[in-house]
């Protein structure tokens, strides 16, 4: 499933990287600690986080993540948006809290552990 379909089904709003929404989402990872995402994120993961800091964008690039979703209605910081637009990294926002959003992603078939 690609990011565009997921965004549509779960009502995610796109804040940056709209042209990269055809990226295939292969799994999901949730963490607010960037060091943890650097250690455990996998290529193609959709990253669910509260972390709105600009460093999320280089981490997403480094780990070749499918995109970043900010939860609980949190908006990306201005620098984050600027970087994400320059690098074409999808940044989306959801009004849902992380637990609920992750549950819905899982129900759509986005796995946390890939077999």
């Amino acid at each position: 499933m690609n990011l565009n379909e997921i965004a549509h089904k779960l009502g995610l709003e796109v804040r940056a990287g709209g042209s990269a929404l055809t990226t295939e989402v292969r799994g999901g990872y949730a963490s607010d600690l960037l060091s943890d995402v650097i250690a455990h994120g996998q290529e193609g993961d959709l990253w669910v986080t509260l972390q709105a800091h600009e460093n999320t964008v280089p981490v997403a690039i480094l780990k070749k993540l499918a995109g970043i979703v900010l939860v609980n209605g949190r908006e990306p910081e201005a620098e984050t948006l600027q970087k994400a637009r320059a690098e074409d990294i999808p940044v989306l926002v959801s009004a849902l809290p992380a637990f609920e959003l992750i549950g819905r992603l899982y129900a759509l078939g986005v796995p946390g552990i890939r077999t």
């Binding site: 960037l34 060091s35 972390q51 800091h53 460093n55």
Partner: peptide, 9 residues
Amino acid sequence: VISQLGFVP
């Protein structure tokens, strides 16, 4: 800064 943000911005 490293644990939270991965590296120094």
